[in-house]
Design a protein around this nucleic acid. Sequence first.
DNA 1: ACTGTAACCTGCAGGC
DNA 2: TGCCTGCAGGTTACAG
Length: 262
Amino acid sequence: METIRRQLAPRVVGRTITAADAHPSPKFAAATDAISHRIEAVARRGKYLIARLDRDRELVVHLGMTGSLRIADPHAPADPYVRGAWTLDDGSVLELRDVRRFGRIAVVPAGVYDSMPTLHALGPEPLSDDFDPAAFHHALRSSRRPVKTLLMSQRPVAGVGNIYADEALWRAGVHPASRRTSRRQSDRIHAELRTVLSDAIERGGTTLRDYRTFEGDTGRNQEYLECYGRAGRPCLRCGAVLRRSVIDQRGTTWCPQCQRRR
DNA sequence: ACTGTAACCTGCAGGC
DNA sequence: TGCCTGCAGGTTACAG
């Protein structure tokens, strides 16, 4: 989402939304609430894109699993998967395409996120100074749930999904199902998350299937994944066969040798 | 206030 | 070829 934000911002900041269309589902219907507003800035919190609008409103977009943002091609045939479209005052049309409809569009008073509980309780940005090792350790200690579940909850830290959770835990040598995290372990996860996420952003994101940058390109980070999706293949650190299990209904890959449970 | 589970959607790959 | 199963970058509602 950070890659998308960087490319999107210069294309839409300063533009006024003159018209909009939305899929009838309540997850997308709010797109039309942005009509007549001017886009002042494009920010991001975790996986949520937040366009600041005039008159103290925000347009919030989440891409779910299969969402992408793009400028519509006026010559392309109709696309049945467009869930929201905003016409800008330069004539261009910004589209949210989302095959599975797990994404979401909201227009809210600035900073009022009570309709989106995960955004409302979102943890600190992983690449900011607010991501504090002591507070992170405390957050991981505050629950008995598996450490991967906690990371995916977006509360100890923002923006960590299935790929980057597996990558960071593998690099940190922490078992994803571990229910107690030492300070040493949380410090390692903290550091590896920063590395994994900043590298992925530098490489334009991770394209497994649907992900595209705002310019329509695939990312390049999938070429550098060391753990995610490699179950059954040898660990790049120790050679043991990586294993696959399910945590919170999410496929999870880990190394039985490097990520010992304790 | 916690935790675990099901639900929301569609497409695709692989097995038979 | 066609049908069926399982799987997929996530969040939210609901039951206990």
